[in-house]
Write a protein that binds this DNA or RNA. Structure first.
Lengths: 218, 218, 218, 218
DNA sequence: ACTTCCGGGACTACCCGTTTGT
DNA sequence: ACAAACGGGTAGTCCCGGAAGT
């Protein structure tokens, strides 16, 4: 397998290996920039903080900021364990497991990981994502994109009707539950138990779903 | 009871009256600007079209463009029948009707109205909303905001547990179905029957929901 | 004497009489607008307050705001007793009084009047004039313009060397003292005695002046 | 002692070193822009010239104009020998020299330098500063700011009463003289001798000061 | 006289491509 | 190689003024 050293399009090669070390350094820098940015956002608000101020605080040039994050929004959206991790989790699930359980398990694990590693950072990010319209939009979009990827992967892996309506639909239903849970948690300043909230939300979803199934024709 | 003559907040009075005519004129102008904008977007792409070009095409100044639409994105998002219409529909539904049916009916009616009135315009807008990331984000956000409003209204009108998880959850599940339907329709250049697609999606949702209800604990 | 009803250039006719009543109404409106503006400036800052917000708070249209004040800056600069009052004071002074005493007396009276009538308003205005660069510039400019007017008037009234250097020079020296006094007073949140501060400043000026006279050639 | 390589605050390092060359290039660009701007202002007036026209004439983008000058006003205010030079001059004076002489010497040298290096440019700038209200305001403000800086520096260097009233007062008296001189010179289209005018003004100041000292209490 | 409509100019923020310097 | 500086361009906001309507 040939080692790639640079990737032009901003995506890291899936099986990135040679530049593992380089990549780790980039991650550290990103973390540092994010830390400064979150601090400034807290102190004076998202819109009121300019990229230049963030760059100054991180002791880099504005131009370099954009080399690490494609946009100001992304400094909030990004986290260490981006998609690939979640996809790996997915693949490790037994293929005959019911769809809902698979998805739920992956979501729980990702969320738990983030929360355990740095709860304060997660809270700050989530509060921004729910408080700033543009970020809220980006967040929801990221979610639906996630569904899409998962749907494609599961559709290939498991035998499913060609038009993958079911996966997409179950996925967004589940994400609705996650959103509600995160919203409550964030409004609560993170004092409540995130995973417990998630459970309550999915339970509510189950109840409604039963209702839904009965109401719909058939 | 004396009628209010002025509204303090600088927005149009809720029950706009004297300026009904003015408001209609503003709507006509907005439609005209949107028409030109959609044409330019089709001809050369969304990002490649500047606000100045739109303003030129609409024979207004850029400054005036922003008086009619708060941002370039909004010229795509806007339509004549904004929220209020949908909320009116909601209130006309019998309060004892099952939740899903109420929501579904309102969604169908809104979509049908838009489609019947000007199918080409709807298609152009939807294609942009699915094709341009920022617009897609705005679209999804508008949807979830809509759920929120509906949830609040229904929560007040019908007796529902104080923490309205169910409405929010059912709402997003339904919106997932709508999204899938719109996506197919838009990819198909609008040649298929939008309402039929919506029915197929909701049916799939029903089936999955049955599954979900069985899988979840309880 | 013919009565003028309107004055095109924004200056009231010196001997305005017929529209005295009209003028008083305008003054009341101006006061009202200024009150709202100062409140908003205090609450959220000068630059952060838009003319539209001031107009809303004063229940007028933005366009009308500009009929009462030529610019946003002027809403801070303006006070009820504009120049004419000061000029009247000047004329009432005995023409053989030493220059410095004349000027000092007029300055003291104007300041005392402003302070006595509405100390809080004066403080708010002065704090803005010292805190916001553009207003500071306007303030200093207004001062020097005042000197110019006074110089011309005194030059005509008293027999003085044709090139009125002395008046201008004494004037600006005195204004320097006033500025220092106002600055201290404003930084002190108005808790100290404005007139006493002014006296201290002019005393210091006297001492320096003696020094200056000795040092200069001659 | 190791030399600092970076400056944290985003401004140019105080003792700019590495970028000495860069800084010189920036100065040349600024001069070029100013030249074009002054020409346009002369041809069609200050208010009637837009930044875009200046940018066009200087063959740069409007955006770049604002990188070199924070505002349209600053293109007139700026000159090559900004404050630092004047402050350097100050420090080179013997500390036991009388205050007035020190200030006068620095003012004379700065003015002479500007005049000698490019009299036409100085005249154009001064005419604008006296003719355009906003620029006049900025000019007067710059003067008083200058006094402030000088007062602080002298207050530290020479032993002076803690509340530096005297320096501020002497400073503004002197500036009054400078203003008068510049005004005459500018009205005269620069045909008279600037330094001679300045001398006449300071003489007048001396005479008045003697008078002042005698008049004030004490 | 006050309002609404609309234009225009100054200015800022984000973001990007290119060059320059180390 | 890598980062900094440079320059450009577009979206968007604010101040302000002219014109027309009520």
């Amino acid at each position: 397998v040939a080692a790639e050293t640079t990737s032009a399009d901003g995506k890291q090669p899936r099986g990135a290996r040679s530049s593992d070390l380089r990549e780790r350094k980039r991650t550290r820098t990103r973390l540092m920039i994010q830390t400064e940015a979150l601090r400034l956002f807290r102190e004076r608000g998202y819109a009121e903080t300019t990229v230049e101020q963030i760059a100054d605080a991180a002791a880099i040039s504005p131009r370099t900021f954009f080399r690490y994050f494609p946009s100001k929004e992304d400094v909030v959206m990004w986290d260490e364990y981006d998609d690939p991790v979640a996809l790996d989790l997915l693949e490790q699930r037994p293929p005959d497991e019911p769809l809902v359980e698979t998805l739920l398990a992956v979501i729980r694990q990702t969320l738990a990981g983030l929360h355990q590693h740095d709860p304060a950072r997660l809270l700050a990010r989530v509060q921004l994502m729910y408080g700033v319209p543009e970020l809220r939009a980006r967040f929801v979009e990221a979610q639906t994109d996630g569904i899409h990827e998962v749907a494609q992967l599961l559709g290939r892996e498991r035998e499913l009707p060609a038009d993958d309506l079911s996966v997409a639909v179950v996925g967004s239903a589940l994400l609705g539950a996650v959103s509600v849970a995160l919203d409550r948690w964030q409004k609560d300043e993170g004092r409540s138990d995130l995973l417990a909230l998630l459970d309550r939300a999915t339970d509510a979803l189950g109840a409604s779903a039963r209702d839904l199934a009965a109401k719909l024709p058939g």
